[in-house]
Design a protein around this nucleic acid. Structure first.
Length: 297
DNA sequence: CGAGTTTGACCTGCGC
DNA sequence: GCGCAGGTCAAACTCG
């Protein structure tokens, strides 16, 4: 996958949940590109909906061909100043370390695995031709930055760590996790930003083909079921949007947190904040070319 | 004892 | 072709 096929799509949101950890998410999604996609500003809902449709039903090809930035969400409520918004540019370390890896290496590795024949040597033979054929198959990937002291945020799913690697130019290792549910191929990568050690970069790949683990659905997960607080457009989604909001949700889902998330989703303030951010933040303005702005009727 | 983690080896892609 | 970096495997290990 090349940069021609992918563009970074940025989503910034920030909110505060509970005293356990303070989340200021500058969220970065990576979505595939498509020439026909309307070059207009999308709300988060639009984005999530479209991206999930694209990944879930038409894994290749139907994605926005634009870089998008969503402004921080509910910053006032969270008491977060605009100065705390993480500025993520396509050339930033976050983008390069997380998205780039997600975009280039992961899929190949995944394809290698998927293509691996049972009778093959465990140390892999040559299957380059087939690999190249299937290289285009890509999983949805969503990366976002969370300001937290803990590396592994509770997101409602169960993960098994399968690797850890040192990251170049970073004192912090990158950890690799797989969803432990059988036949679920979702993976995630967790690494702490070396530029801002207080932030953790989490990259999800793939879509869960199952609901949240039963043991978790009674507490935090239950409050995050789509009918509970996702907009109608997101109802039924079980992958990224769900994960995102679970990720952003508190461990114990106290009322403050629930209200924060619900409020965030109910009021859908992305557009107004977006405009604000674009006008007030030169960097973000750079990240949102005017051609991506939709003029609502 | 099963599930999850650690960690060194290995594979692959990419840039030079 | 070579070296580097990212990603994955899998045996050994830890933990409940």
């Amino acid at each position: 996958m090349s940069d021609h096929e992918f563009r970074d799509f940025y989503y910034h949101a920030s909110t505060i949940f509970n005293n356990d950890y303070h989340v200021e998410a500058a969220d970065l999604f990576r979505v595939s590109s498509a020439d026909h996609y309307p070059p207009s500003y999308m709300s988060l809902t639009d984005c999530l909906h479209s991206s999930m449709d694209q990944y879930g039903e038409k894994a290749s090809g139907l994605s926005p061909s634009s870089s998008e930035v969503f402004s921080p969400t509910k910053k006032e409520h969270a008491g977060v100043s605009s100065g705390e918004v993480m500025a993520i540019t396509p050339n930033s370390s976050i983008s390069s370390s997380s998205s780039e890896a997600a975009g280039n290496c992961e899929e190949d590795s995944e394809n290698n695995k998927n293509n691996k024949q049972p009778e093959e040597s465990p140390k892999k033979g040559s299957k380059t031709a087939k690999k190249k054929d299937e290289r285009k198959q890509k999983e949805p990937r969503f990366a976002f930055v969370t300001k937290t002291e803990v590396d592994q945020l509770e997101d409602g799913y169960r993960w098994r760590k399968y690797g850890q690697k040192a990251v170049k130019n970073s004192p912090f290792p990158r950890s690799y996790y797989r969803c432990t549910t059988q036949k679920c191929t979702v993976k995630k990568r967790v690494e702490r930003s070396y530029q801002d050690p207080s932030t953790v970069i989490t990259t999800y790949e793939g879509q869960h083909n199952h609901l949240l683990p039963t043991s978790l659905r009674g507490n935090a997960a239950a409050l995050l079921q789509p009918p509970m607080f996702l907009p109608p457009q997101l109802a039924g989604m079980t992958s990224f949007p769900h994960e995102l909001f679970v990720q952003m949700a508190p461990h114990d889902m106290n009322s403050q947190a629930g209200a924060a998330v619900s409020s965030m989703l109910a009021e859908n303030p992305f557009q107004q904040h977006h405009q604000h951010q674009v006008s007030d933040n030169g960097l973000l303005q750079d990240m949102v070319p005017s051609r991506f702005l939709r003029h609502e009727p």
